[in-house]
């Protein structure tokens, strides 16, 4: 029996889709069988980030309305074995799907796959409830911004009401240089407020933009600090003990930043 994990944030633009794509790919690279589900009906883009846009024929809506089998709607990844995408319908709206239907799809998938990652839409409305319906665990993505943290806090409250446990946190786009200057909220301050387990920290990485636009998840580029962070997180998700490195000023990543700012 696999695990169904919803990846959510409340606020938009903090990296839910990017994280889903990268964690799904990373887990599959480790050798797990993975399905990533786009729950953002009407505004789908997980297929674009994965570079699978042109291969989507059927969506979760087609499965729900029994136009095709679940197996047929799963799109195989181009690069990694055992990674599948279930795309969202672009023609429908979020309230066209009911939480029970989403739950049903997740239940069927977990019989065959190790990890089912559900990419939640932003917001706390029907789309979020659908995404969380089949999940037993949740990963909250937040950036170190007051607004993102506030929304994450709200979402944690809602997930706890649905008895989703454990709820863990990925702190995305942290810049150690800015933290040191006092211009960014630190990891410890975020944890202090949200008070949930930290699954990992992803540093600010310009490579994300290029990888998103090319439709190749960042983890394929082993050199990037963001990719390393996602690989570590994926290992932690499989139960391995991988320490969270303290991001210091003198690491590779900030050296580059320093080098730029010296010029």
């Amino acid at each position: 029996m696999g695990k169904v994990i919803v990846i959510t944030s409340g606020k938009g633009g903090v990296g839910k889709t990017t994280s889903t794509a990268n964690l799904g790919t990373a887990l599959a690279m480790i050798g797990k069988t993975v399905v990533i589900i786009d729950a953002d009906v009407g505004l789908r883009n997980l297929d674009v980030v994965m570079g699978l846009e042109s291969r989507v024929v059927f969506t979760s809506m087609d499965v729900i309305e029994k136009r095709c089998d679940l197996d047929k709607a799963l799109v195989k990844d181009r690069r990694v074995e055992d990674l599948m995408l279930l795309a969202a319908s672009q023609r429908n709206r979020k309230d066209d799907i009911k939480p029970e239907q989403m739950f049903d799809i997740c239940e069927r998938l977990r019989e065959e796959y190790d990890f089912i990652l559900v990419d939640s839409p932003a917001g706390i409305e029907q789309g979020f409830h659908n995404a969380a319906a089949g999940a037993e665990e949740a990963i909250i993505i937040t950036t170190p911004d007051v607004s993102a943290i506030r929304d994450a806090d709200r979402i944690i409250g809602l997930l706890q009401n649905q008895n989703i446990d454990p709820i863990s946190l990925i702190l995305n786009r942290l810049s150690p240089t800015l933290v040191k200057k006092g211009n960014m909220i630190s990891k410890n301050d975020v944890l202090d407020i949200l008070n949930i387990d930290l699954l990992g920290v992803v540093p600010e990485d310009e490579g994300v933009i290029a990888s998103t636009n090319r439709g190749v998840p960042l983890v394929h580029n082993e050199q990037s600090p963001g990719a390393e962070a996602y690989m570590r997180i994926a290992r932690r998700m499989t139960g391995q003990r991988v320490p969270i490195p303290e991001m210091r000023e003198d690491n590779f990543f900030s050296n580059i930043l320093n080098w730029f700012s010296r010029k």
Binding site: R150, D151, D153, R154, I156, G157, L158, Q160, N195
Partner: peptide
Amino acid sequence: RQTIRSGQ
């Protein structure tokens, strides 16, 4: 016995 979060 819980933290009161945003919106609660």
